[in-house]
Design a protein around this nucleic acid. Structure first.
Length: 115
DNA sequence: CGACTGACGCCGA
DNA sequence: CTCGGCGCCAGTC
């Protein structure tokens, strides 16, 4: 069976913990996954993630709150739709991080370390 | 081997 | 708020 690099597994695992109605930035996910400074790797991992995993990729955006896709692109539209469906307000292709930022509990951290 | 490219982030002008 | 520049790293050419 194919050997999936650990960093990817860690990243997918972390993204999967983001609760509906909340969002996280690429850098935040990288940090929580034990890969500080590897924000770009998070983007890469999500692009490679099997759709069968049903990861909440739409809850991951840039640190500024901007969606990672160009406004109007099919990806941006789908991401916006999914977020609003969860109650996250998206205006001009961006979200108010101050209001919707996910704040992982100590339990969340432990859950990831345990993995 | 070097140059370029991303679903990024931060700092300074 | 916008731009430019640099750091970051795995792939690709």
């Amino acid at each position: 069976m194919s050997t999936i690099a650990q960093p990817h597994r860690q990243i997918w695992h972390t993204v999967n913990l983001i609760p509906a109605g909340k969002v996280a930035s690429y850098g935040m996910v990288a940090d929580l996954a034990g890969l500080p400074g590897r924000a770009r790797l998070v983007g890469k991992s999500l692009s490679l993630a099997p759709t069968a995993l049903l990861l909440p990729w739409h809850r991951v955006l840039r640190a500024t709150g901007q969606l990672a896709f160009p406004p109007g692109s099919s990806n941006a539209l789908e991401q916006t739709g999914r977020l609003q469906q969860e109650g996250v307000v998206v205006v001009n292709n961006r979200v108010k991080m101050q209001q919707f930022r996910w704040q992982p509990t100590p339990a969340d951290i432990l859950f990831m370390l345990d993995y």
